[in-house]
Design a protein around this nucleic acid. Structure first.
Lengths: 232, 232
DNA sequence: AGTTGTCGTCACGCAAGTGTCACAATCCCG
DNA sequence: CGGGATTGTGACACTTGCGTGACGACAACT
C-alpha cells in the first residue's frame, strides 16, 4: 500500500546540494521540488503547495531565517513545517532558527537517513487527524478511533481494504457508486487494478458481515454497488 | 487537600543566592526547599517531591547540566520541570542546557519578578502530575507511584521503554494507534527512530507480559496496535 | 579494564492480505 | 425460453506486513 507521497520543497542556492537531497528524499518516497532563491521558493509554495520545506540558512538576498519568519507570520503558510539547514559550526543559530518558527534544525553534513527520519517526525507531528465519531447502522458499528467493526458489540474481523470499503460506504450511504468510483475513493486515485477486483472485495465484506448485515450492501446491476438500510 | 502553593527546590552552592531566591518565591506564594549540592538535591527530590527545580549551572562536583540530564533520564523524575540558572555571558550554554532537558533558562542577575513569571509559565506548561492511581486490567496492574508492573501481584520485569509503552496503552485503552503516534507519545516527539522499532518493543512487552496478558496488545494490521480487553 | 542491561536496527520467514482468473449463477431483454 | 451480459464465488499465485531472533552501540555500574 503506497501512501500518498508528501511533497517537499528544497530551498538552497547550491544546485548540487539540492540534487543530493532530492535524490535521497525521492528514494524514500517523497515528491521533491527545488528552489534556488526565496523568490523561487515563494512561487513554488503559492502554486504547488508543498507539505513541508527544507530551508537553507544562508541564502542570497533574504536570509533563510528571515524567510522562515515571514512564512510563519502569514496565516496561509503558518502551518507549513520548516526544517532549517545550516553549515557546521553555526550551532549558535539553532535557537534563533527555532525561534523564527522552524520546526527542526539539521546541521550539514548530515546523513540522508537522518534527514529522512527527522522529516518523517516533523510531518507526523504536523498532520492532525480529524475527530472521528463511530457510525452505527442497525447494530453494525464502525469505530474509526478504535479501528474496529462490531455487530451488536461482537467484533468482526476484516482486512484493511474491506475496512476502508465499509467505512466509505457507511459515510456515504444510500448512494450508488460505480466500480471506478470505488477504486478512486477506497483504493486511492492512481492505482491500476481491474474493476472486477471490487466485486471480490464486496464479496469478502458481505461474507464478513454475515447474514445479519450483508443485505446492507446492495448490487446495482449495470452500475455498481450501494450501501443502504432500505430494502431494494 | 494539599495547600495550593507549589513547592520549588532551589539548587545552588551559594547560600545568599538561595536565600534571596527563596524569599522572593515565598513572597509569591511558593514553598521553598534549598539544596547546596547535587546530593542534597537528590535527597530532597526523593522524599519531598518538589513540583519543580531551580538548578544552578555551576555546582561543585556534578555539574548542573549533568544533573539535569540524569533527572530527565529517570522515569520517576523525567516530568519534573527544571529551570537552569547561569551567570551572564554564558549564553552559549543555552542550547546545551535546553538539550539536557531544562524547560527554561535564566541568566543571572535576574529580577525576582522575571523569575516568578518564568516559573509560573513553566509550571503552567508542565503536565499536571495528576494523582496517579494504579491501573488494573484483569490482574495486570501498573502502579505509577511505585513504578511497578505486576501480574496477579507477582512482579513483571520490563525496561523503561516498555514501561512507558505499557503505561500509555493502559491509560489509552481500546483505541488504535499508528507506530508514528506511539513514537510521538511514548518516545517523545523529537526523537528519530525507525517506525519498526515500535514492533520490537511491542514484542518485548508482549513477551514480558506472558501468555496471560499478551493478548491485551492487539495488532491492527496495516495500522498499528491497540490495547484492548475485548477479543479481536 | 569488564559486566550488565537497554535500545535501535536489520534480516529472515511466515502468515495475512490482495489482485486476478475461471467458472458458476443470475439477470435481462428480445 | 434461449443467449449475451453481468455478477457471485472459490481457488490461486503474488505481495506485503508483522513476528522474531540476533547483533552492535552505548551508558551505567562493578
Amino acid at each position: 500500500m503506497t501512501k500518498a507521497g508528501k511533497t517537499v520543497l528544497i530551498v538552497d542556492d547550491e544546485a548540487p546540494i539540492r540534487e543530493m537531497i532530492a535524490v535521497a528524499l525521492e528514494m524514500a518516497g517523497y515528491e521533491c521540488m527545488e528552489a534556488a532563491s526565496v523568490q523561487e521558493a515563494h512561487a513554488h509554495i503559492v502554486d504547488n503547495k508543498p507539505d513541508m520545506i527544507l530551508l537553507d540558512w544562508m541564502l542570497p538576498g533574504t536570509s533563510g531565517v528571515e524567510f522562515a519568519r515571514r512564512l510563519k507570520r502569514d496565516d496561509l503558510t503558518a502551518e507549513l513545517p520548516i526544517i532549517m539547514l545550516t553549515a557546521k559550526g553555526e550551532e549558535d543559530n539553532k535557537v534563533q532558527g527555532l525561534e523564527a518558527g522552524a520546526d527542526d534544525y539539521i546541521t550539514k553534513p548530515f546523513s540522508p537517513r537522518e534527514l529522512v527520519a527527522r522529516l518523517k517526525a516533523v510531518l507526523r507531528r504536523a498532520t492532525p487527524q480529524g475527530i472521528e465519531e463511530p457510525i452505527d447502522v442497525g447494530g453494525l458499528m464502525l469505530d474509526p478511533v478504535c479501528h474496529r467493526v462490531t455487530s451488536h458489540s461482537s467484533p468482526i474481523d476484516i482486512g484493511p481494504t474491506e475496512y476502508r470499503l465499509l467505512q466509505f460506504f457507511m459515510t456515504h450511504q444510500e448512494r450508488a457508486y460505480s466500480r471506478a468510483q470505488l477504486l478512486d475513493q477506497v483504493w486511492g486515485g492512481n492505482v491500476y487494478v481491474e474493476e472486477r477486483t471490487v466485486d471480490v472485495h464486496i464479496r469478502r465484506l458481505r461474507k464478513a458481515l454475515g447474514e445479519t448485515h450483508e443485505h446492507l450492501i446492495q448490487t446495482v446491476r449495470g452500475t455498481g454497488y450501494r450501501f443502504s438500510t432500505k430494502a431494494s
